[in-house]
C-alpha cells in the first residue's frame, strides 16, 4: 500500500470472526434502516403474495403463506452502505417452496413490493435454499420499518436485494434492472466481490 491517509489509524475490527466480513464492510450491533420512501402499511387481510410470469399465476393470502412450511435461517447480512450484521435469525418460507407451485422456464425474477420498489435477481440466486419470504425476525413478527409484514431475504447478496414489503415475484426470461439497479447500483450485488455500483 503506497498511499495512506495522514494521521488515520482507524479502529481495528478484530471482533469479526475470520471470513465472515466481506471487503469494505464493518460490523454493527444495531439494525440500521434504509429505504427510499415512506413505510407502507398494507392490512394483512388485503395482503397477498403473487408469483406471475409462469404457466399460471399463483397467489397466496397471508394466512395461506403462513400455513406453508417455514424455516428459521440464521444468516449474516451485508448492506451496501457498509454495515454487516452477523447471525441474524429469521423465519419465513423458502422461495423454492413458492416457485415449486408454478411451472416455468424463467432465468430471472423481479421482486415487486408495496411502494413500487423492485429488485432483480438471477433465478439461481433465489433457488436452492438461498432465499426466503421472511415474516419473522429474532422471534418476533417482522417490524414494518424492516420490511414487515414480509420481505424477501437473500442474505448472500447486498441487502438491498432483500426487498422490503415484498408482494410478489415476476418470472422473466431476461434480466431487468430494478429500482436501485436503475439508480447506480450493481445488477447482481455480491458483497464478496464488492459489486456495489455500476462498473464494479
Amino acid at each position: 500500500m503506497s498511499f495512506f491517509t495522514r494521521g488515520f489509524e482507524g479502529r481495528r475490527r478484530d471482533d469479526a470472526p475470520e471470513g465472515r466480513l466481506p471487503p469494505g464492510q464493518y460490523l454493527t450491533g444495531g439494525f440500521p434502516v434504509l429505504s427510499a420512501g415512506p413505510t407502507p402499511h398494507t392490512p394483512l387481510e388485503e395482503w397477498t403474495f403473487t408469483v406471475e410470469g409462469g404457466a399460471e399465476t399463483a397467489r397466496w393470502t397471508w394466512d395461506e403463506l403462513r400455513a406453508l412450511p417455514s424455516e428459521t435461517p440464521t444468516v449474516d447480512i451485508h448492506c451496501v452502505t457498509r454495515w454487516s450484521k452477523l447471525d441474524t435469525v429469521w423465519e419465513g418460507v423458502s422461495v423454492d417452496t413458492l416457485l415449486d407451485a408454478v411451472e416455468h422456464d424463467a432465468s430471472y425474477v423481479l421482486a415487486f413490493c408495496d411502494g413500487g420498489y423492485t429488485t432483480n435477481l438471477p433465478l439461481e440466486d433465489v433457488t436452492g435454499g438461498k432465499a426466503w419470504i421472511a415474516y419473522g425476525y429474532d422471534g418476533e413478527p417482522l417490524d414494518p420499518e424492516h420490511g414487515g409484514p414480509a420481505r424477501l431475504l437473500v442474505p448472500h447478496l447486498y441487502f438491498w436485494k432483500s426487498a422490503k414489503w415484498v408482494r410478489g415475484l415476476r418470472l422473466l426470461d431476461d434480466d431487468e434492472p430494478g429500482f436501485w439497479e436503475s439508480n447506480g447500483y450493481h445488477l447482481r450485488g455480491d458483497p464478496w466481490r464488492e459489486q456495489r455500483y455500476w462498473g464494479d
Binding site: Y26, T28, G30, P32, V33, L34, S35, A36, G37, P38, P40, T81, R82, W83, G115, G116
Partner: peptide
C-alpha cells in the same frame, strides 16, 4: 402520494 416523498436515512454508522 408515496412516490412524492423521497427519503434518505442515516443510522449511527460512524
Amino acid at each position: 402520494p408515496s412516490e412524492r416523498v423521497k427519503t434518505e436515512r442515516f443510522g449511527a454508522t460512524g
